[in-house]
């Protein structure tokens, strides 16, 4: 399956990646898997750490699946399906 990943903020500046299409053999995977995959890339190692951190849910990363915050769904276990869009933001604030 193919998942569109959009990277923002300091992660985007550090990795130079703004979006990429992730090809995964499975039909659906938990978000944690996607973060692991992305975490292999230069500048995105923080995502690997996030995926490994079992209590990572409390970190204020903003992870949206189809515009919905996964922490309002099943957190890192939220199931991602073919053709969906994941947006990833490092902890951010402003106003």
């Amino acid at each position: 399956m193919a998942v569109e990943c959009k990277i923002f903020g300091t992660l985007r500046l550090a990795s130079g990646i703004d979006r990429l299409l992730l090809d995964i053999p499975e039909k659906s995977v938990p978000l944690r898997r996607i973060l692991e995959e992305l975490g292999q890339r230069k500048g995105l190692d923080e995502l690997k750490k996030l995926a490994q951190n079992r209590n990572g849910e409390s970190l204020p990363f903003i992870l949206l699946l189809q515009g919905k915050n996964v922490f309002d769904l099943d957190g890192l276990e939220t199931v991602v399906k073919d053709g969906q869009r994941v947006s990833i933001f490092p902890p951010s604030g402003g106003g």
């Binding site: 903020g9 300091t10 947006s87 933001f89 490092p90 902890p91 951010s92 604030g93 402003g94 106003g95």
Partner: peptide, 23 residues
Amino acid sequence: NPVTGQGLPSLGTKVLDNIINEH
């Protein structure tokens, strides 16, 4: 803190454009 120590210094408040738009 990642927000006040990293996010705001490097991107300022405009880090929000994409967050709020994607939302």
